[in-house]
Amino acid sequence: MIVPEFDYLTPQTLNEACALLGEYGSRAKVLAGGSDLVVKMKNGLLKPDYIVSLKNLQDLKGIRYEAGTGVIIGARTTHNRVVENEILRERFPSVSAAAGTMAAYQVRNIGTIGGNLVNAVPSADMPPILIALSAKARIVGLSGERLVDLEEFFLGPGKTVLNQDEILAEIIIPDQATTGSSYIKFGLRRAGSLAVAGVASSVMMDGEMAEDVRIVLGAVAPTPLRAREAEAVLRGKKVSQELIEQAGKIAAAESKPITDIRGSAEYRRHLVDVLTRRTLKTAIEKGHV
């Protein structure tokens, strides 16, 4: 298989990268890890004239904690670094675990968290848990930078709010001490499989009360989907098995799955019910600090 020809551009700064993207527009593609881009190019699904490699932008790598802000993950951080990172494992273990469900070890050494988000594949594993944790995207462009709620980031399969000259620089997960969270991916093999459905839940507990709840569904709509009606079932209530079951059913009803080779819409809807219940239970347990 052959990667179609292109011009290879290696900006030294983020600003330079934005300038190149602004100039070439849709004829250019950003190369972060390449685990998605190279596959699409080999399959003839993408034939960009220019590839803008981020490999020299070291600032976009790494994970740090800033008090008052939260955990900040550089967009070029590979999945395995997310899996292994001590800060994340301590503060948001569900994020590390979600990264560990992706592909297989070698691919997780190539693919980046930014790439996983910007590709906007409906079955992607990182968006649900990050949205459930109210993560924000720091986006840099020629006219400066902006912070976008990750929930607002996705517009459709392969489509995000990024303008032509913009690059996703960082993901910020804000502090939320009493929040428990969980992501469960349902795949058809234990490695190297895409989610048939994936659900992330986060619950901020206040004693027995669920002060806040976020339920995010993956692979069952064109974009990651918040199950707001299901969230409302639990929000501000004393948690109970009955309410959890109700939330599961409502989340399933809110999902908009399609049928494809991995599963039927009906089955996916059912999985949303099961996974919503299971993630809520775990999130509630973990939210009791």
């Binding site: 234990r190 490695a191 190297g192 080779i261």
Partner: peptide, 24 residues
């Protein structure tokens, strides 16, 4: 192996045609 309504293969790759991994 699965096909669409025109006989085109839908999973002729090792991601979608799943042979078991060491975890399975």
């Amino acid at each position: 192996m699965v096909f669409d309504a025109n006989g085109k293969p839908l999973n002729a790759n090792l991601g979608d045609y799943r042979i078991p991994t060491a975890l399975d």
